[in-house]
């Protein structure tokens, strides 16, 4: 029971002290939204590079459109049929397999960062945790072997 309680009370990530600012508002901003704002600002700057570049380029480049220029390229002569022609997507089963495996990979992540905590002397549940994950991964591999034997990964 005590072990279970310990398990329950474990923090999800290592504790990291947050830096303090004198102003209250900035501190709150940093603590609660800092991560999101940083990521969004970086993305915005990425978009700004493209936008700014196109703006500068629009001052320099010529603009003389005509009918031939705005056609799509297809080996030089006039294109035959539309651009969005029917294509055989051979690998849609790969896509389905990918979905299954990717979702299961997400299950491994929380386990992965907690293996260390359970393996030490203080909390000897390492073997138990390990066997559980080995069973999980064995089922995954079994699924993959089934897919291979079934022939869905063959290209024909």
């Amino acid at each position: 029971m005590r072990d279970l309680l310990y398990l329950y009370s474990l923090r999800t990530g290592p504790h990291r002290p947050t830096r303090c600012y004198s102003e209250g508002f900035d501190r709150v901003l940093d603590q609660y939204f800092g991560d999101y704002i940083t990521v969004l600002v970086f993305m915005a700057v990425g978009a700004l590079i493209v936008g700014g570049g196109l703006l500068v380029s629009s001052l320099l480049r010529p603009n003389k459109p005509n009918k031939t220029k705005s056609e799509v390229y297809e080996c030089g002569i006039n294109p035959v049929g539309g651009g969005w022609s029917q294509t055989h997507i051979r690998y849609y089963i790969f896509a389905l397999l990918f979905l299954i495996f990717d979702v299961e990979a997400i299950f491994i992540f929380p386990w992965a960062i907690n293996v260390e905590r359970f393996s030490g002397r203080e909390f000897g549940m390492g073997g138990f945790i390990l066997v559980e994950m080995i069973i999980f991964i064995a089922i995954l591999i079994l699924g993959l072997v089934y897919a291979i034997r079934k022939g869905v990964l063959r290209w024909d």
Partner: peptide
């Protein structure tokens, strides 16, 4: 050199998606 090249968008293209992709 690329900066001075004309900006061509095919007439048949899906305009908005085509322009959004590099962003």
């Amino acid at each position: 050199k690329f900066m001075q090249k004309e900006d061509l968008v095919p007439a048949d293209a899906d305009d908005r998606v085509y322009k959004l992709a590099p962003y």
